[in-house]
């Protein structure tokens, strides 16, 4: 009996955590892609907003009827913003921290402005959940992990596998890592550091934009101001927690997602504790995702310092350092 309740609670937690942090997963993969080639884009929060608002505009104002096309439009918008960022920091070598924060601020402001007249309008063009059919229905353990949108599978399985394979099993990926770790060496063997950095940070921005598009095309599904609500920053934290390894990002994103769904579940069911009423508990739980994310960042670094054997979790050596041949 007790076991069944715990199992039930756990499954419903995971079941709602998976879609809740698909955004974080997409943004974390996008951020990791850029960071692997040495470009730190702190503008994830803004990119999510831009991706989301342009998907909303595509659906509500341009009459786009396919969620995939709407998502593509959101991704292109985010990629354009990412290109401006990349040109500033890679080609002009401006400070990645400053321009990244500028992108976060500007992206939030721009997307909120563009979304002003569309607040709360429900989006009808939605992703449909994948239904693997008959026999698997009506079982909690199955439905927690299945019956999600295709985007969820892409975010949690497709992208990490592809990124892992490319990074660690191909020559191209080795060159990518070289650009992030030792750009001078990559340059010496004929890899265009500038070109690769711009290309992959733009691709990463597009992925983050896809995260924003997913929010409005499936998760919320409507536009509201400040749509990212910190998920962009959490995604950057997840990259650190994951030690720049694609697979571990899944664990980080799910950790954050389960804290989010713990909060929403507690609110919906009016949970309380003996020493804390339901409303106080929900305030407390709404701080938890960020606290847990913060602690999660400290884990890899702490493990290294406290002498545990962990595989390399250090940031790419040239992260956030502009490369210039003249300055070697």
């Amino acid at each position: 009996m007790i076991l069944a309740i715990i199992e039930n609670a756990f499954l419903s937690l995971i079941g709602s955590a998976i879609p809740a942090s698909a955004v974080v997963m997409l943004a974390a993969t996008g951020a990791m892609l850029g960071e692997r080639v040495g470009v730190l884009n702190l503008g994830q929060e803004g990119l999510i907003g831009i991706g989301a608002v342009y998907s909303v505009i595509a659906v509500l104002s341009w009459g786009v009827e396919s969620p995939w096309l709407a998502m593509l439009i959101g991704m292109i918008a985010a990629a354009v913003a990412g290109l401006i960022f990349a040109v500033c920091v890679v080609a002009f070598r401006a400070s990645q921290v400053l321009v990244g924060l500028a992108l976060a601020l500007g992206g939030i402001g721009l997307s909120n402005q563009l979304g002003t007249n569309r607040n709360g309008t429900p989006i009808q063009t939605l992703f449909r959940e994948v239904n693997p059919g008959g026999i698997l229905d009506n079982h909690d353990a199955v439905s927690a992990f299945l019956f999600h949108d295709p985007v969820v599978y892409i975010a949690y399985i497709g992208l990490p596998v592809v990124l892992w394979f490319v990074l660690f099993r191909t020559r191209h990926g080795m060159n990518m890592r070289a650009v992030g770790e030792n750009p001078a060496a990559a340059d010496a063997v004929g890899v265009s550091v500038t070109g690769w950095r711009i290309f992959y940070s733009v691709l990463g921005a597009a992925l983050t934009g896809a995260g924003g598009a997913y929010m409005v095309l499936s998760f919320t599904p409507t536009w509201s101001p400040d749509i990212a609500r910190g998920r962009g920053w959490v995604a950057l934290a997840v990259v650190i927690f994951a030690g720049w390894r694609p697979g571990w990002a899944v664990a980080g994103a799910l950790l954050y997602g389960s804290m989010i769904s713990l909060d929403t579940t507690a609110q919906a069911r009016g949970w309380g504790l003996p020493f804390m009423g339901a409303s106080d508990l929900s305030f407390f739980l709404s701080m938890l995702p960020y606290v847990v994310t913060l602690v999660a960042i400290l884990i890899p670094a702490g493990a290294v310092k406290l002498g545990r054997r962990v595989r390399s979790t250090a940031a790419p050596a040239a992260l956030a350092i502009p490369y210039s041949r003249e300055e070697r």
Binding site: L98, L103, G109
Partner: peptide, 22 residues
Amino acid sequence: LSVYIIFAIYGVILTGIALGEI
């Protein structure tokens, strides 16, 4: 003018500062 535009302007100004530094 909305408060959102002010944020967008902040973003542009911050980019301008970063480029000026270079």
